[in-house]
Simulated scan of single mutants.
Amino acid sequence: MKCDSGASDTQPAGLVIFTDERLCRAIVDRLTFEAHIIATGTQSFRLAGTTAKRQAAVAAT
């Protein structure tokens, strides 16, 4: 699942993109309602990996 403001024709099969901001907010709200979210105060491993991949792709072009 991905919340995005625009769709692309090159998305992998099975990826669902919610382009409606209101719908995206509602889904996130329902997923996190009464959830125990633990803030560890550290940088996200997934975010760091994604950022590094994007920077490498931009540098390669």
Results as ranks from 00 to 15, higher is better:
Thr32Tyr: 00
Thr19Met: 03
Ala48Cys: 08
Ile38Glu: 15
Glu34Gly: 00
Gln11Arg: 09
Ser44Trp: 02
Lys2Thr: 02
Ala57Asp: 14
Gly14Ser: 12
Phe18Gln: 01
Val58Cys: 03
Val16Asp: 05
Ile27Phe: 04
Glu34Pro: 00
Glu34Leu: 14
Arg54Met: 09
Leu23Val: 08
Gly14Cys: 06
Cys3Gly: 01
Gln55Gly: 03
Ile17Glu: 02
Ala39His: 09
Ala59Asn: 11
Leu23Ala: 13
Gly14Pro: 04
Thr40His: 07
Asp4Thr: 06
Asp29Cys: 09
Ala13Gln: 13
His36Ser: 15
Asp4Ala: 10
Ala60His: 03
Thr10Pro: 00
Ala26Trp: 01
Ser44His: 05
Ile37Gly: 05
Ile38Tyr: 15
Cys3Pro: 02
Asp29Glu: 14
Ala52Val: 11
Val28Met: 09
Asp9Leu: 04
Arg30Ala: 15
Asp9Asn: 06
Glu21Val: 00
Arg25Gly: 06
Asp4His: 02
Ala39Lys: 11
Gln55Pro: 01
Arg25Leu: 05
Ser8Met: 01
Gly6Leu: 00
Arg22Tyr: 00
Arg54Cys: 05
Arg54Glu: 03
Lys53His: 09
Ala48Glu: 15
Ser8His: 03
Val16Phe: 04
Gly49Leu: 13
Gln11Glu: 14
Ala59Trp: 10
Asp29Gly: 09
Ser5Glu: 02
Thr10Arg: 06
Ser44Arg: 05
Thr50Val: 09
Glu34Phe: 11
His36Asn: 15
Gln43Met: 06
Asp4Phe: 03
Thr10Glu: 15
Gly14Ile: 06
Gln55Arg: 15
Phe33Thr: 07
Pro12Gly: 04
Cys3Gln: 00
Asp29Lys: 13
Thr50Met: 08
His36Gly: 08
Asp4Cys: 11
Ala60Gln: 03
Ala59Arg: 13
Phe33Tyr: 11
Lys2Arg: 05
Leu31Pro: 01
Ala35Cys: 09
Thr19Cys: 09
Ala7Phe: 00
His36Ala: 14
Gln55Cys: 10
Asp4Val: 02
Ala26Asp: 01
Met1Asn: 11
Leu23Phe: 01
Lys53Thr: 09
Ala56Met: 12
Ile27Trp: 00
Ser5Cys: 01
Asp29Leu: 07
Pro12Leu: 08
Leu47Ser: 07
Gly41Ala: 07
Ala52Ile: 12
Ala26Val: 01
Val16Tyr: 05
Ala59Cys: 07
